[in-house]
Computed example of a mutant assay.
Amino acid sequence: DTIGAGDTVNAALLHGLSQRDALSPHALEDMTPTDWEDLLRFAAHAAAVTCTRAGAEPPYATELDEL
């Protein structure tokens, strides 16, 4: 079920940026390609978890901590 997958990607990106203290334009400029790869992988994983559930049921951050 893909309901909510896009919203989950956006939420995971914001969460990941916040965890990296990278919500300012200057901090975004300092992110390396590897940082972006890790962040995008995290967001894709979060969306994949959402797709395994019925309805828009995104994972909690604690469910993704092992990444």
Score class of each variant (00 low, 15 high):
residue 49 V to N: 03
residue 52 T to W: 09
residue 32 T to W: 12
residue 28 L to E: 10
residue 26 H to Q: 15
residue 56 A to N: 13
residue 61 A to G: 02
residue 50 T to R: 09
residue 19 Q to F: 01
residue 16 G to P: 01
residue 14 L to N: 12
residue 18 S to L: 11
residue 32 T to K: 13
residue 17 L to S: 05
residue 37 E to M: 11
residue 40 L to V: 10
residue 31 M to K: 11
residue 53 R to T: 13
residue 46 A to I: 10
residue 50 T to N: 09
residue 44 A to D: 13
residue 58 P to E: 00
residue 45 H to D: 06
residue 31 M to N: 10
residue 5 A to R: 00
residue 39 L to R: 06
residue 31 M to C: 11
residue 67 L to M: 05
residue 30 D to N: 14
residue 48 A to W: 13
residue 56 A to F: 00
residue 29 E to K: 13
residue 50 T to L: 11
residue 13 L to C: 14
residue 10 N to A: 11
residue 49 V to M: 08
residue 22 A to T: 04
residue 26 H to M: 09
residue 19 Q to P: 00
residue 36 W to V: 03
residue 31 M to L: 15
residue 50 T to P: 05
residue 45 H to L: 09
residue 58 P to D: 00
residue 47 A to Y: 07
residue 17 L to I: 05
residue 66 E to H: 08
residue 22 A to C: 06
residue 23 L to F: 04
residue 65 D to C: 00
residue 38 D to P: 03
residue 53 R to N: 13
residue 40 L to Y: 10
residue 21 D to A: 15
residue 49 V to I: 15
residue 50 T to Y: 10
residue 44 A to I: 15
residue 4 G to M: 04
residue 22 A to F: 05
residue 41 R to H: 15
residue 9 V to D: 05
residue 66 E to P: 00
residue 50 T to A: 08
residue 11 A to D: 06
residue 17 L to H: 02
residue 33 P to S: 12
residue 42 F to D: 03
residue 41 R to F: 09
residue 51 C to E: 02
residue 6 G to V: 06
residue 48 A to G: 11
residue 3 I to G: 05
residue 49 V to D: 01
residue 16 G to I: 02
residue 31 M to W: 10
residue 5 A to Y: 00
residue 11 A to W: 06
residue 62 T to W: 03
residue 49 V to R: 08
residue 52 T to E: 13
residue 16 G to E: 03
residue 45 H to I: 13
residue 55 G to I: 00
residue 35 D to Y: 08
residue 18 S to T: 14
residue 46 A to N: 04
residue 42 F to R: 14
residue 63 E to P: 02
residue 41 R to K: 13
residue 63 E to A: 08
residue 8 T to N: 06
residue 1 D to F: 12
residue 56 A to K: 07
residue 37 E to V: 08
residue 20 R to E: 01
residue 26 H to C: 01
residue 34 T to P: 00
residue 54 A to T: 12
residue 50 T to E: 07
residue 41 R to I: 11
residue 27 A to V: 08
residue 56 A to L: 02
residue 10 N to D: 07
residue 7 D to M: 08
residue 11 A to G: 05
residue 11 A to L: 09
residue 19 Q to R: 12
residue 59 P to N: 03
residue 23 L to I: 11
residue 32 T to Q: 12
residue 34 T to K: 11
residue 19 Q to E: 14
residue 44 A to M: 13
residue 63 E to N: 01
residue 13 L to G: 05
residue 1 D to R: 13
residue 12 A to E: 07
residue 24 S to Y: 09
residue 53 R to H: 15
residue 47 A to E: 04
residue 25 P to I: 05
residue 20 R to H: 03
residue 20 R to F: 01
residue 8 T to A: 01
residue 30 D to K: 15
residue 27 A to E: 04
residue 37 E to L: 12
residue 58 P to Y: 01
residue 52 T to R: 14
residue 39 L to W: 10
residue 8 T to W: 04
residue 56 A to Y: 04
residue 18 S to Y: 07
residue 39 L to D: 03
residue 13 L to H: 09
residue 6 G to A: 07
residue 34 T to W: 06
residue 34 T to V: 09
residue 37 E to N: 09
residue 59 P to S: 00
residue 29 E to G: 14
residue 16 G to H: 02
residue 17 L to W: 03
residue 66 E to L: 00
residue 13 L to I: 15
residue 21 D to T: 12
residue 16 G to T: 03
residue 12 A to C: 11
residue 48 A to Q: 13
residue 43 A to D: 04
residue 26 H to Y: 07
residue 44 A to N: 15
residue 28 L to P: 03
residue 48 A to N: 12
residue 10 N to C: 04
